[in-house]
Amino acid sequence: MEIDGIISAIFIGIIIGVLGRLVVPGRQRIGMLWTIAVGIVAALIGSALASVLGVADTKGVDWIEWLIQIGLAAFGVTALDRARTRR
């Protein structure tokens, strides 16, 4: 992955993390930096998963890829919130 791909993954990860956090109902007890980190990881994994499924390179906006990424971010935010709550 080139540097412009990493930078765009960071920016998309911020958006994905915030959207994933908005999807999860209730209050999450994690900070914005954790949300951004979860979003970046979800964006990278979601892109790889969409590529494997063959839905990553379509004409226009890749809605299925975005939904996969947001779903992974919501799962990550929920998992991290529950892990921090148990401590």
Rank of each mutant, 00 (worst) to 15 (best):
I14F: 09
I15K: 04
I16H: 04
I16E: 00
I16W: 03
G17V: 05
G17I: 04
V18I: 15
V18T: 08
V18S: 05
V18F: 10
L19S: 11
G20R: 03
G20F: 03
R21N: 13
V23D: 00
V24G: 01
V24H: 00
P25M: 10
P25H: 07
P25Q: 09
G26D: 14
R27E: 15
R27G: 11
R27P: 02
R27Y: 13
R27H: 14
R27D: 15
Q28D: 13
R29V: 04
R29I: 05
R29L: 08
R29Q: 14
I30G: 10
I30H: 09
G31K: 04
G31P: 09
G31T: 08
M32I: 11
L33Y: 07
L33A: 11
L33M: 09
L33V: 14
T35I: 08
T35F: 00
T35K: 02
T35D: 06
V38T: 10
V38M: 05
V38I: 15
V38G: 07
I40V: 15
I40D: 03
V41P: 08
V41K: 04
V41Q: 04
A42N: 02
A42T: 01
A42W: 01
A42D: 03
A43V: 08
L44V: 13
L44D: 01
L44M: 14
L44N: 10
L44I: 15
L44C: 14
I45F: 10
I45N: 02
S47L: 08
S47R: 07
S47Q: 11
S47Y: 06
A48K: 10
A48E: 13
A48P: 01
A48D: 10
L49W: 03
L49D: 03
L49V: 12
L49K: 01
A50D: 07
A50T: 12
A50N: 09
A50H: 09
A50W: 04
S51K: 12
S51N: 15
S51I: 10
V52P: 03
V52Q: 11
V52K: 10
L53T: 04
G54A: 13
G54K: 14
V55F: 12
A56Q: 15
A56D: 14
D57I: 15
D57P: 08
T58W: 07
G60I: 07
V61R: 11
D62H: 12
D62K: 06
W63V: 15
W63F: 12
I64G: 02
E65G: 14
E65L: 11
E65W: 09
E65R: 14
L67Y: 05
L67T: 08
L67D: 03
I68F: 03
I70W: 01
I70D: 00
G71P: 06
L72K: 02
L72N: 02
A73K: 05
G76E: 05
V77Y: 00
V77Q: 02
V77H: 02
V77D: 05
V77G: 08
T78L: 12
T78Y: 09
T78N: 06
T78R: 11
A79F: 07
A79L: 12
A79S: 08
A79V: 11
L80I: 13
L80H: 00
D81A: 09
D81C: 05
D81T: 11
D81K: 01
D81F: 03
D81N: 13
R82S: 13
R82Y: 12
R82D: 13
A83K: 09
